[in-house]
Amino acid sequence: MGAGGGDEPPVRAGADVPADAGSAAPRWASKAALVALLLGWGAWAANLTAIVTRGLAVERWPWANMYEFVVAICFAAATAFLGTHLRYNVRFLGPFVMLAAALGLGFAVKFLYTAAGPVVPALNSYWIAIHVSAAILASGLFVLAGVTGILYLVRGDGLSRLPSREYLERVAHRAIVLAFPVWTFAVIAGALWADKAWGRYWGWDPKEVWSFITWVAYAAYLHARVTAGWRGRKATIVQLIALACLLFNLVGVNIFISGLHSYADVG
């Protein structure tokens, strides 16, 4: 089963961005933007359907292996974007977040796909609802922040279709500020689960190590942002390093390193 396409909406970047975006966008552009948004919501609904039907098929929480987890994170990233868009002017992010989600879904279907089925006994626990859901939510927001961070780095000075760097920085920061406590909670819930399942709440298992590294890296970002001389470019780089750690934990640790978490059931 396909996972519901997160098709990239053909919106022109920054069809209606604030501040220095120059003159008002032509009418066809705002129509295209509307179509793109509707497409985005449609893709979101398809992704949601994929997750719900998967859950019904397997009769458990549908994020217990790597395929399901990646699909859920893409959904979370799309949700983060569409949700933010309801309140703030972040339409310029649409094509980029949706592209990231589409690539993620493509990767999941192509390389990670596993047929619907039961999971190892250790995963049959209500903790999966708590711990993994929090990790997914935080990851979705971190991805949104990362995409914004990359835009920050590629945006030159002067006029651009993208909003000002300052605005980009602020969007990324807001997303991380939301995600960081959620991630903290996810790590702690993981420790609680480990305490139930493995007899210790923290044992430096590779997955634990990389969650911790990710957490520290985002903490470093938050510190960098309030330190003179580290704001802006440097802080953004720190943020992207943190995102790389997050992704490595998701993909690299499951595939390259064995540990207690290695029931990720990679395709």
């Binding site: 430096w204 590779p206 190590v209 990389w210 911790f212 590294i213 520290v216 890296a217 903490a219 470093a220 510190h223 750690c245 640790v253 390193i257 540990g259």
Partner: peptide
Amino acid sequence: LFLFALASVPGSL
């Protein structure tokens, strides 16, 4: 903080 994170990397490899 960075050193702390970096130092735990070999622990996973």
